[in-house]
């Protein structure tokens, strides 16, 4: 792969990679670092990657792995018990990031961030990025049934909460 095909095939995936990393990490800065690492990793391994058909899915997969590595090392470092619940990840947003989402969007964002990791990733890949099930299998390194189960659970968890919000006007 030369610099030209890198620019045409790899660099344009940056925004999708960034959103995916952000979905996992909850911080724009860290997501950007991860995407940059992915780009450098792909470039350094370009000789081995010539045979890869779906470069975008491959990059997404590396993004997922690097983001998870980062999460794990962060969890190892922090001595605080892992918090649970809605607002946890919201706190990691900077004020600037928070103003980007209006109130309603923030509510949905909270619903999404409250989902377990795998469900959140699969739902993001399908509903935000519009990947096919096969591509999601490739990115997530899961089989079709696992992907569908995770998506089903994610969508229904979100639906349930939406119904509740609607019914009780909780926000």
């Amino acid at each position: 792969m030369n610099i030209e095909s890198f620019e045409n095939r790899v660099l344009p995936t940056k925004n999708k990679l960034f959103r995916f990393a952000f979905r996992l990490l909850g911080s724009q800065e860290e997501a950007r670092d991860v995407v940059q690492d992915v780009m450098i990793k792909v470039w350094n391994g370009r000789e081995q990657m010539a045979s890869i058909e779906n470069m975008e899915a491959w990059c997404m997969r590396i993004t997922k792995n690097l983001s998870l590595d980062r999460l794990r090392s962060k969890q190892r470092k922090s001595t605080d018990p892992i918090e649970e619940g809605f607002e946890v990840r919201q706190e990691t947003l900077t004020p600037y990031e928070r103003t980007e989402l209006n109130e309603n969007m923030q509510r949905i964002n909270q619903l999404m961030t409250a989902l377990p990791d795998k469900q959140r990733q699969v739902m993001h890949l399908r509903d935000v990025e519009g990947y096919s099930y096969n591509e999601i299998c490739e990115i997530m390194e899961l089989d079709m049934s696992q992907v569908k189960v995770n998506l089903f659970r994610a969508r229904n968890a979100v639906r349930e909460r939406l119904v509740k919000l609607n019914a009780y006007g909780l926000s």
């Binding site: 610099i3 890198f6 620019e7 660099l11 940056k14 925004n15 960034f18 959103r19 952000f22 950007r32 995407v35 940059q36 780009m39 450098i40 470039w43 350094n44 980007e100 309603n104 969007m105 509510r107 949905i108 964002n109 999404m112 993001h124 509903d127 935000v128 990025e129 979100v158 939406l162």
Partner: peptide
Amino acid sequence: ELFRYFEQQQNMTVKQSFDAEVKKKI
């Protein structure tokens, strides 16, 4: 709101200088 959220998320992009930074590094 949920469906609008999905679409709105697509607007999230990395900053403009990203390409140049990556190219400089590689």
